[in-house]
């Protein structure tokens, strides 16, 4: 067993960190930057694709959660297309949920909000047992959070089936994994923001790092982020079942919501400054927690796997 990143994986993570800082540290992400980043995060020598995606998306989300969500969304679609043997032309995203139905007979309906959908020209519809490439029209979701991620609902209509139940399961798993990676990135960003707040306070003569309230908050942020990170990595490498990826997502979104709350406490009232980093992270964490059906959907998925013979009431 070697549940530690090997050299290639560490190099891929470091490269993603550099790329994230260069491409996304200033201003909103452009569709071009998102497309380029997504193309680079789906392939690296010696690194398993799912793992590479989660490593890179975490690093991007740590700098800019909205960009991480957009790149993750496009990268997840690219992985599904590759698995289906399709050319990764243009900019595709996976959609599902909402009122979308996708089965052997066809696709129709309006999806849940999906990052990067506004910029996409192709839509992969993930149903329970089938995957379709569909035409669609995106409508801005107008939600508070992940500003600049191109979040939109998509109305899908006609299309062509490109895979069955196995591809659908893989699609759901990579979607959850990229969302988990965004959430882990937000936890890391919250830790960074807390450390910045501590450094600023020290410059003004304070010593918040000697306060146990601050120390414990930092420890809890680090602990839960690490738990979510290992669950995400494990699911990316070893367990792309619905259950494994759902567990990673529950842990990661819970951790992110808690991390931003604790980091904001460390920063004090300045954390609520309009347009400030902490306030933005709180909105982003909340939205990432809610996308894809939220924890309730994931917990339902896990429970269904654990209790196959006991149908839900």
């Amino acid at each position: 067993m070697n549940p530690l990143l090997n050299e290639d994986e560490q190099a891929a993570r470091a490269a993603a960190r550099t790329m994230a800082a260069e491409a996304f540290s200033v201003g909103a992400a452009t569709p071009e930057a998102i497309g380029a980043a997504a193309a680079s995060v789906t392939a690296a020598d010696g690194v398993q694709s799912n793992l590479h995606m989660t490593l890179a998306v975490e690093e991007i989300a740590r700098v800019a959660p909205a960009a991480g969500a957009a790149v993750g969304s496009v990268a997840a679609a690219a992985l599904v297309l590759r698995e289906a043997g399709q050319e990764p032309n243009g900019l595709a995203v996976c959609v599902g949920g909402g009122s979308v139905s996708a089965d052997e007979s066809g696709v129709a309906g309006t999806s849940e909000p999906v990052p990067a959908a506004q910029y996409a020209d192709r839509f992969i519809v993930i149903g329970d047992d089938a995957v379709w490439m569909a035409a669609g029209a995106a409508t801005s979701a107008d939600l508070d959070g992940l500003a600049g991620s191109g979040l939109a609902r998509v109305e899908v209509s006609s299309g062509e089936q490109i895979g069955g139940a196995d591809l659908a399961q893989l699609g759901r798993a990579v979607l959850r994994l990229q969302q988990s990676a965004v959430a882990v990135g937000i936890s890391a960003a919250a830790q960074d923001a807390a450390l910045t707040a501590i450094a600023d306070a020290k410059e003004s003569g304070g010593a918040p790092d000697r306060s146990q309230a601050v120390q414990w908050a930092l420890a809890d942020i680090a602990t839960e982020a690490e738990a979510a990170r290992v669950a995400t990595w494990h699911s990316a490498c070893a367990d792309t079942t619905d259950q494994g990826s759902a567990m990673a997502l529950v842990l990661a979104t819970d951790a992110a919501a808690k991390a931003v709350r604790l980091a904001a406490k460390i920063g004090g009232v300045e954390s609520a400054a309009a347009g400030g980093r902490m306030a933005e992270l709180q909105r982003d964490a909340k939205l990432v927690e809610l996308l894809g059906g939220g924890a309730a959907a994931q917990l339902g998925t896990i429970a269904d796997a654990l209790l196959p013979d006991v149908p839900r009431a």
């Binding site: 669950a231 494994g244 567990m247 654990l306 839900r312």
Partner: peptide, 12 residues
């Protein structure tokens, strides 16, 4: 069911 799911995730 949801509690059971959360327990399983935390154990993992």
């Amino acid at each position: 069911r949801h509690e059971l799911g959360r327990m399983a995730a935390e154990i993992r």
